[in-house]
Structures are given as C-alpha cells and as structure tokens.
Write a protein that binds this DNA or RNA. Structure first.
Length: 820
DNA sequence: TTAGGGTTAG
C-alpha cells in the first residue's frame, strides 16, 4: 500500500499534499498485481528521466559508449525497481503475482532470482522453488550464498533427495561449503532425509558454528527418533562449547525427554525454561505439557494446564492426547467437551487424539461418531485422520471399515500401510498381512523397521518357517540386521516356527542384546520343553548384569511348568518378591497352577487359586481344567469349566476339552450334552488344521483331507502306520471321540489332520530329517499317543507345535511328559 | 533477501 502511495505521489503534481492524497479512495485499496506492474512501468520512466537529468554525466547521443552505458544504467535501475516491487509482493505472500512480474522482467539478476525462489519457498511451493533454481542455473545466472539456503530448504521440504545432493555438490564446487547459513540449511536437509551421518559430517566440517547449527543437529536427532543422541548433543553443546539453551534447544530437549521417557531430565529443562523467563510462552508451555503427558505424569500435566493463563487448540489437543495415551479415555473425552466450553473448536488433531480413546474403550459407537464428525466438518480426506480411523476400527475388532478406508485413501503413507498390516495381524488375519506386505514391496514405498517388526509376528503365527526365513533374509538385505527390536522378533519367530537352533544362532550373533532378547529366547526354550536350558540361560542373563523383569519370570516359570521342574519353579516364584521386589502377576500365578497340576496335586492347585491375592481369570481356571483333564479328575474339570464359562460364555476350547474328557471316560451322554449346549449357543468347534512345509510351500490338512495330490498314498501309509503301531480299528477313544459323536461319520484317528500332515512330512522329506508340523488346536489324546509310537517306529524326530507348546516326539516319547 | 517443532496416525 505504501508503494502505491509513493507511486501515485510521483505520478501527480509535486504540490499534492499527503492529506489530499489520503482522501482519495483509490489509494486505500490494496494494489492488484496488474496495478503494480503498471505502476512499476511508470516508475521506470520516472527513473529514466531522473538518471538522464545530470548534464555533467551526459555523453554524446551518437556515441556507442554512451549508448551502452545508458542501456546498462537503465537496466540496473529497471532491475532495482522490479526488485522493490517483487520484494513487496513476496513479503505479502502474493507469489503468483510476483511470478507474473518476474516472468515479464528481462534478464533477472541473482538478486531477483533469489527473491523469486524465496517467494516460492515461503509459500511452501518447494518444487517450484527448486524448478526456479534450475532455470536460474540454465539461464547462466550465478547462484550466491543467499540462493542456496532457500534452495536447500526447498529440496528438503519437497523430499527432492537427488536434487538435494546435486545442490550440495554445486555448493562445494562454487566454494560456498563453509558458509554458516548454507551449512545450517544442509544439516536440516540431511536430517529431513533421515541421513543423520551426512548431517553430522556437514556439522563436523563447519569452520564456525552458531546456536542454529547446534539446534539444527539436535532437532535432526529428535525428529529421527534418536532422543538419546539428542540429549547427549545438548549436554555437549552446553558443557564443551558453552552454548546456552534457547527456545529451540529447550523444545528439542523436551521432545527428546518424551522419546526417552526421561521425566526427571524433563523437569530440569522445565526449571531451565523458568530461569530464562520462557515459561510464560504458550508454545513452550504446550511443549512442557506434552512432555509431562508423554512421560505419563498426568497429575503434573493437569496442574501445568490449570496454571496456564492462556490456552489454545494446540494446548487442549496436547492434554487430550495425553489422557488418551495414558489409558484415561473418559478423561480425554471430558477434555474434548470442556475445550468447547472454552470456545475452542476441535480440529483434525483433536479427532486424531480422540480415536485411540475410542479404541481403548472398544467403543465403536464413539469411533463412528468421530468419523461422522470428521465427514461433516469436511476434514476428510486427511492422511493422518484416515490412518487413525483405520487403526481405531481394527482395534475395535471390525476390519471391514479399515479395509474400505485403506482401499479408498487418495494418498497412502508408509504409516498407513503399516497400520493396515498391524490391523490384520492383531485380528489374526496373518495371511492377509503377509499378502499386504508383499504388495507394499511392489510399490515405491519400502518397508521400514515398523513394517518388519509388524510382519515378523505374522510369520510366527503362521508358523511358516520358509516365509520367516525369507523375511529374515530381507531384514539383512535392508540393513536392519543390527536392530535389536527386529532381531528379537526374529528370535521369537524362529522359536515359534519350531526352529530353536536358528533362534539361538540369531541370539548368539546379535551385536547388542537387550532384556527382551533374553526373555524371548528363554521363552523359546520353555515352549520347546527345554526347561534346564531355559534356566541356564536365565543364570547367564543375570551373570551378564541384566535385571529380570516380569516378562523374564513369565518365561522362567513357563519353562519350569512345561518341563515339570517343581522345586525350581517355586524357588523362582518366591524370589520374584523376596529377591527382586516384584509382585507376581496373573500370568505367573497361571504358571504355578500349571506346575501344581503337573505334580498331580489338584488339592494344592485349588488351595493356591483360593489364596491368590488376584481375582482368578479364565486363564487360571483354564490351567485347572487342564490339570483336571490330565489327572482324569472330572469333578475338578467340571468345576473349572463352570468358572470359565461364567467369565467367558463363548470359550469353545473349554467345551471341547470337557467333551473330550467325557469321551475318554466313555460318557457318551455327557459328550452329547456338551456338544448340543455349544450348538444352542451358536458356537462352533474350530476345525482342526495341520500344516507342514514342503519344497518352500505350506501344505495344509484338515481331518480326512483328500485334497492333496498325494492323498491316496498319504491315507494308505497312515493306515499302514496305524496298524504297525498297534492302533486298534475299534479304539474306544475313537468311538467316543466328540468329533464322531457330533458328525456321526467315521473319522478314525489315522485320518486326523495331524496324522495326515505327519505322514506327508515323513514321506516327502529325506530319511533321518526331523518332521515339523504346526497345528491350530491342541493335540488330541489319540494323536499324541500315536505320534509317540510313530516316532519310535520310524526312527524320526517329529516336532508338533500346538497353540501353546512344541512337542518333540522321539524314540516313542514326548518332551511334554504327556502333560499338555 | 539468507538457517530452526508447541499438539496428530503404524
């Protein structure tokens, strides 16, 4: 406006007063781009007149030198005036009008190019900024120390990795690689690319650094999830270099404390902010609030929030997110209501923060209401909101809306892909998760550490050793071979897929083992029935200086119970409280009930449950049911089943186990009663399925399966083996098998899915090699007895994983000691 | 004319 005012004044009589000009309505209107261009043209003419008014410097009109000199001078003056106009437009954020003026300018110089590139960068038109730089270079105009910070920033924000590297090379070539501003922008660029070592290299090679250099590196660490390195860097900058923490450093430090869950350090930084008079800044207060929320101190967060004199939507969102994060979903919703009383309008972040609260409450109604609100407010499509919605639906157990959202997303980030993969895994749809993982690899987005950590458990659940090996190979190729989170998942996967030897090899070769690594391997030994080895590993873990946690004891007590190491089990259970000051949790009590059941002391098991300081769950009564079943004590089993069904009326496993017991005891009427009760409740027994891998493929068998290409041979061999091990055709167990009782069809144990899978494994693999089979339900008595005998007869090791443990059948015996 | 996070998804 001032510019037009000035221009207008020049175009009119010199005697025109400011007051009279101010009274003209045209002057108070904002200048349009065209008006400015026209005005600029007018200024050119004025300037030309002025420059030609000095008779002392005038050259003969026909002189070539005079002509050239005049042209140059005119050109300089033109550019200077364009620059003023262009600068005004850029500063006003009117980048399109600035571009129009720029394009109409002949031979723009470095200064004008810089202005234009800055205009694009300020308007977040980063790709256009980079394009303008390319045009500048092609036009032969020299880029200077002002040009590069804008260009580097634009490369960083447009994810133009190749351009970024080319620009850096150019900076080195023109000798500007020591410039403070350029180096600072390069640190940020490399951090945004996730190339922290490149950012560090730029930082290290700087001849001089300022606070921005340090803050940029610290921020780079934080934004790449390297909270610890960020805190180390902050300490170093303060102590070794005497750099004071400013607003930026404090906010980065607070984020680092959130990442590393360092509440005490966060409080120290809070004190530092107070000492430096920054505590009244609303942004800093919100950052502090966020730090307290992320560290789980909602009491302090609430107190800080209450003390704030001013709050905005961001502040409210931080508090809502805090309550949702800290498992206080109702408080999160209460805040969302209160914020509206405070005249704050919920935005996309508010809704994104509320969705985990819906998931926590398992309240699809709340989730759907938020979804509807997002649609009504026109927030969709929105990448983060859609991903959060997908996650909410999946956690509420409804995958269909998640799939629809994912399918229809106009833009998908890697986080969206990961969320969908996790959604499948958490809902037991492991095959779909694996398919999606393969699909992801076909596109431009590569899997990251989250993807890998999500997909490995799917392989573990599918018990697909081949798939697991392929994922392991991918992990090594993709450079995640030293990531302890990923490697821990891989150890678990190998153990759950039945190959404990490879699990051990991965563990032994880990560059850095954490507590989880030990816990996972101890559990691996436990589920394979190698109790002694698990306890040896536990001792080695303590010798290595690691302190056991609750999960360690779950693994150790599981090992003791599965292997029947009663004395050791009680020793470790007691040591939890006496030596390590831990209160046993429900899982630990469950292991002890298993242990008591295994020692056949059902009375002690019942007393133990009655004296437990925790309310028994279905898992505890399930252990008692198993104990009753393995000790052939129908009364105890019935009592346990009653307790389970009181807590979980749809527990099909409970019905099946009880009916199996009745069948073993020859109580045909009770079998019928239990099975009809199941039918009345609309429950269905899980169809048994056994998997065995052959030639890199998983072969699946159901009971009586005849779909396999070699079915005739498999059934024939199974019948022969059945006879060889002396399995009677009229086995009383077979007659009263609940499957037969319900289906009323002949289904001899020799045709059970496990038997078919074992036989196929035996005939399709090299003589002497072990056979590995995975089963989706527990092994029935007949198959357990038969596979023991088959292992003796064939001289082969047969490994069968059920839903809980691995049975190693060898020389006619099973590692479970006939208790499972 | 140059560099820098308050809250959000896996």
């Amino acid at each position: 406006m001032h510019l037009v005012y000035a221009l207008h004044r020049r175009s009119n009589n010199k005697n025109t007063s400011d007051a009279s000009l101010a009274s003209r309505p045209a002057l108070v209107l904002p200048p349009s781009g065209v008006a400015i261009i026209m005005a600029t043209a007018f200024v050119h003419s004025c300037c030309n007149t002025v420059s030609g008014s000095n008779p002392q410097r005038r050259l003969p009109k026909d002189s070539p030198a005079a002509s050239t000199s005049t042209t140059r001078r005119r050109s300089r003056v033109n550019l200077a005036s364009v620059a003023r106009t262009l600068s005004s437009l850029v500063n006003a954020g009117r980048v399109r009008e600035a571009a129009s003026l720029f394009e109409s300018t002949k031979k723009p110089d470095t200064f004008l190019w810089n202005l234009m590139i800055r205009g694009y960068a300020d308007a977040e038109l980063y790709e256009e900024a980079v394009h303008a730089y390319r045009r500048m270079r092609d036009a032969g105009v020299w880029a200077d120390h002002f040009t590069f910070p804008f260009v580097v920033k634009s490369c960083a924000n447009s994810s133009s990795y190749d351009d970024g590297l080319r620009v850096h090379a150019k900076i080195i070539k023109v000798g500007l690689d020591s410039d403070l501003f350029i180096c600072n922008s390069l640190i940020t660029m490399y951090s945004k690319f996730g190339l922290l070592s490149a950012a560090e290299r730029v930082f290290d090679e700087m001849p001089a650094r300022d606070g921005v250099s340090w803050n940029s590196l610290v921020d780079g660490y934080v934004s790449n999830g390297e909270g610890w390195r960020s805190l180390v860097c902050i300490k170093h900058m303060q102590e070794a270099f005497g750099v004071k923490l400013d607003w930026f450093a404090i906010t980065s430090a607070l984020s680092a404390c959130s990442l590393e869950l360092r509440l005490e350090q966060g409080k120290e930084i809070h004190c530092h902010a107070v000492r430096n008079g920054l505590e009244s800044d609303i942004k800093l207060q919100t950052a502090l609030l966020d730090m307290y929320c992320k560290n789980g101190d909602m009491v302090y967060a609430d107190r800080l929030f209450g003390s704030m004199s001013r709050r905005n939507v961001v502040t409210w969102n931080a508090l809502i997110g805090g309550y949702a994060l800290n498992d206080e979903p109702l408080q999160a919703f209460a805040c969302a209501i209160k914020m509206q009383d405070d005249y704050m309008i919920p935005d996309t972040v508010t809704l994104v923060n509320l969705l985990p609260a819906c998931a926590e409450l398992r309240s699809m109604d709340h989730g759907k209401a938020i979804h509807a609100l997002a649609i009504r407010k026109g927030f969709l499509p929105h990448l983060i909101l859609e991903t959060a919605l997908m996650d909410m639906y999946a956690k509420c157990g409804d995958l269909k809306p998640s799939e629809l959202l994912f399918e229809k997303m106009t833009e998908k980030s890697l986080v969206s892909w990961n969320a969908m993969i996790v959604a499948y895994v958490h809902n037991g749809r492991n095959s779909e998760a694996l398919q999606l993982f393969l699909h992801l690899q076909e596109g431009p987005l590569g899997p990251d550490v989250f993807t890998i950590s999500s997909i490995i458990p799917a392989c573990a659940e599918l018990a697909s050793l081949q798939q697991g090996k392929q994922i392991h190979s991918y992990v090594l190729r993709a450079g995640y071979g030293s990531d302890s989170v990923v490697l821990n998942s891989i150890i678990n996967m190998y153990a759950r897929c039945g190959d404990l030897n490879i699990a051990r090899q991965v563990f032994d070769r880990m560059p850095c083992r954490d507590l989880v690594s030990w816990n996972v391997l101890i559990m691996g030994y436990a589920i394979h029935g190698h109790g002694e080895a698990a306890l040896e590993l536990f001792s080695a873990m303590k010798d290595a200086g690691l302190k056991p946690n609750q999960s360690t004891f779950t693994s150790v007590l599981t090992a003791c119970s599965i292997t029947g190491l009663s004395d050791e089990g009680w020793l470790h259970f007691d040591s939890m409280q006496q030596e390590h000051g831990m209160s046993p949790e429900i899982e630990h009590y469950g292991c002890m009930v298993d242990l008591l059941g295994r020692t056949r002391d059902l009375r002690a098991a019942m007393d133990f449950i009655n004296k437990m300081p925790l309310v028994p769950t279905a898992r505890i009564w399930g252990s008692l049911l198993t104990a009753g079943r393995n000790n052939r004590n129908i009364e105890v089993a019935e009592f346990a089943a009653e307790q389970i069904l009181r807590l979980e009326h749809d527990n099909t496993g409970c019905y099946v186990l009880l009916s199996s017991m009745y069948a073993d005891a020859g109580k045909r009427e009770d079998v019928d009663r239990v099975m009809s009760l199941m039918t009345q409740k609309g429950l269905h027994r899980t169809a048994a399925r056994s998997l065995v891998e052959f030639d890199g493929k998983t072969c699946s068998f159901v009971n009586g399966d005849k779909s396999h290409a070699q079915s005739d041979k498999i059934h024939r061999v199974s019948s022969v083996l059945s006879r060889k091990i002396g399995e009677a055709a009229c086995d009383p167990g077979a007659i009263f098998d609940p499957i037969d009782a319900v289906t009323k069809r002949a289904n001899s144990p020799s045709r059970h899915s496990l038997r078919l899978a074992v036989v196929f494994g035996l005939i399709s693999s090299p003589v002497g090699s072990p056979v590995l089979v995975k089963k989706n339900v527990r092994i029935c008595n007949h198959c357990h007895r038969a596979v023991k005998l088959i292992s003796g007869f064939s001289g082969r090791e047969i490994i069968v994983g059920d839903t809980k443990i691995y049975h190693h059948f060898s020389n006619g015996t099973c590692s479970c000691g006939d208790y499972w």
